[in-house]
């Protein structure tokens, strides 16, 4: 942060892309009054409200749960609502859209690829027999809950995809969050057809593409640890071939 005529300021170098104005992306520099407790998102909002109304980005809850506001901050995928300016004290902050996704405008990226993958992994409880509601909830012990709880914490913020070099090279790769969510249902005792998701996760471009880089688990803001889910899914795939083929269906 620099002192600028008596007021402390933070300098943000923001990636801009306005397809209707200019065909090529550019970088724009903004100076924002700096407060110790300001997050990067506050700075973006300050720019939007007071300096440049054209700067475009997504956000909503500003408490790290809606998953809208991811961006590459100084090269690292982060939730802008959870990255404090003081973490970057003493230098300029480079704000770019999440890596590995096509940019629609400024910091807004196209995440349709993930939305389709999420749809494909059947992220819902599959029952072979439905229990009538009158019989109440399916019983699940705290230990059974613990087996998948961590993987149900994914907020779909896409930081893990932005951090994954494999996804960067092959967008067909199922990727961290989708696998973690698939595993979340596979490991849920209420689900009665785990194997329904095996073709997706054990596809040629499913978990086998993962080379254990581990960056997904490093950047995950919710401690989901997608890498762990991928490894667990790999073990399921490897042990699956020892089992007799499934019958029916």
């Amino acid at each position: 942060m620099t002192k600028d005529s008596g007021v402390e300021t933070a300098t943000l170098k923001v990636f801009r892309y306005r397809p209707e104005v200019q065909t090529e992306p550019f970088v724009q520099e903004y100076k924002v009054p700096y407060r110790q407790d300001m997050v990067v998102l506050d700075a973006l909002n300050y720019i939007k409200d007071h300096i440049d109304g054209t700067l475009s980005y997504r956000w909503s809850c500003r408490m790290g749960i809606c998953g809208s506001c991811g961006a590459n901050v100084d090269g690292e995928p982060k939730l802008t609502c959870a990255s404090f300016l003081h973490e970057f004290k003493g230098k300029e902050i480079k704000i770019e859209p999440l890596a590995n996704f096509p940019v629609i405008k400024d910091l807004i990226v196209n995440i349709e690829d993930f939305m389709e993958k999420l749809d494909h992994i059947k992220p819902w409880i599959i029952r072979k027999e439905e229990t009538p509601l009158e019989k109440g909830e399916y019983r699940q012990t705290p230990e059974e809950l613990e087996a998948y709880k961590q993987f149900s914490m994914c907020i779909n913020c896409m930081l893990c995809y932005a951090a994954c070099p494999i996804y960067g090279m092959n967008e067909e790769f199922l990727g961290p969050a989708a696998t973690a969510l698939a595993y979340r249902y596979i490991a849920d005792t209420r689900d009665q057809d785990h194997e329904a998701r095996f073709p997706m996760v054990h596809d040629k471009e499913g978990v086998w593409e993962c080379t254990l880089v581990g960056e997904c688990s490093v950047v995950c803001p919710k401690g989901v640890d997608p890498m762990l889910a991928i490894q667990k899914t790999k073990i399921l795939g490897a042990t699956q071939i020892l089992k007799p083929p499934r019958r029916g269906k």
């Binding site: 509601l133 109440g136 909830e137 012990t141 059974e144 809950l145 849920d188 689900d191």
Partner: peptide, 22 residues
């Protein structure tokens, strides 16, 4: 109560008592 059970049947990871109830 019906809606709560439905949400549970759809997979909501409710916190549980040791006997498995929500």
């Amino acid at each position: 109560p019906r809606e709560a059970v439905l949400l549970e049947h759809w997979g909501c990871p409710f916190s549980r008592d040791p006997d498995g109830r929500i």
